[in-house]
Simulated scan of single mutants.
Amino acid sequence: MNLEDMAQRLEASGDYRVLRRLVPRRHPHLADGSATRIGLFVDVETTGLDPVRHEIIELAMVPFTYALDGRIFAVGDAFQHLRQPAEPIPPEISAITGIDDAMVAGQTIEPAKVAAFAAPAALVIAHNAAFDRRFLERFCPLFTRKPWACSMAQIDWAAEGHEGLKLAYLAAGAGFFYDRHRAENDCLAAIELLATPLPKSGILALTRLLAQARPPTWRIVAEDSPYDRKDQLKARGYRWSDRPGPAPRGWYLDVDEAGGEAELAFLQAEIYGRPVQLQVTRIDAYDRFSERC
């Protein structure tokens, strides 16, 4: 009996669940002549969380060809490089990523080569795009001109039965595991998830992601809202922002176009108790997750 047969017997018993090592599929779906676009999944490993103070130490980009309905036809070869930062890599970062100073010594990533590799992409995707985009825009200006999507934030994983948003948790929920926290492996695991039907709806994960990424949203900032209303705002899904940028300091919520008027009416009636003029900003995939909004 081979290992796969043993795994199937264990699963059939109802007492075991078997995770299989990810074997990346080069052609998750068969091409059928449909119109296609080039997607680019990216992942960075860095010396910390702040794109102003910290640096990229590893970058991976994996291109893939997809149909407009979310089917992935082909996964290309990765761009994967290490980079030596100006300061030693903190021990806690090495513990997480497995990348130490000896591995990156003398290594560089040329922004021009990054730009050339990423140029054909019609869409850039990351798992936590709010993190990766801010680092990559500082490193290579091309990424400021690309539309972005986030496989973590723009798919309702909880509604599909998943209990966490980390890539490793989602992979385990989909029945596989992989060697984590190296950029190329993370990209390939995420692409596999995007090419797989979601467990409850049966819709391809990339299909759901594209549906969320394409339309614009509207960011409403409840600037100077009463302090004693903060719990009410949090319960409604508002998040606090005080980071530098064009947006004012305050509680904010992103809504679709249809929900904007209702949200403004709620704020005036329940939060401010009077008519107010609030900042409402249109955000699309070209700006979403960037430092510009």
Results as ranks from 00 to 15, higher is better:
M6T: 10
A285R: 12
D77G: 14
A130R: 13
R288S: 03
M6F: 13
G273I: 10
M103E: 13
L49N: 02
G98W: 01
I57Y: 00
I191P: 00
N128M: 07
A60Y: 01
L10I: 02
I56N: 02
G202F: 12
P244Y: 04
V221T: 15
A247K: 10
P28K: 00
Q107R: 15
D50K: 11
I56G: 08
R26F: 03
T46I: 09
L204Q: 03
R180N: 08
I125H: 00
A112K: 11
K166T: 10
P216K: 04
Q154M: 15
S151G: 12
A171M: 06
Q8Y: 02
R53A: 14
I155R: 06
V52T: 09
Q8W: 04
A78K: 04
S151T: 04
Y16M: 14
R274W: 02
D231F: 12
K230L: 10
A60P: 09
L278P: 06
A172V: 02
L59I: 10
G202E: 13
A121G: 09
V124R: 00
N2T: 12
P226R: 10
I220W: 01
V62T: 11
V23N: 10
D284I: 05
N128G: 06
Y169V: 15
L188E: 06
I271E: 07
N2F: 09
Y272Q: 06
F79M: 03
G250S: 07
R71A: 12
A7E: 08
D32V: 02
R83M: 15
Y169P: 00
R274C: 13
I93C: 05
P248C: 08
I271A: 06
R292Q: 14
N2S: 13
L40R: 01
K230H: 08
E4A: 12
P246I: 12
T97R: 03
D228C: 11
I203P: 00
Q80C: 15
P147Q: 05
K200Q: 13
P216M: 08
R138K: 14
S34M: 07
P246D: 14
A195L: 14
F64P: 00
R20E: 12
S241D: 13
F143Y: 08
M1I: 07
T108W: 01
G39T: 02
T65P: 07
A285D: 11
Y227E: 14
S225F: 01
I89R: 03
F79G: 05
P216N: 06
A211C: 05
E58W: 05
A222C: 09
G76T: 07
T281N: 05
C293K: 04
L19A: 11
L82N: 04
Q268A: 15
L10F: 04
I191V: 13
L210V: 02
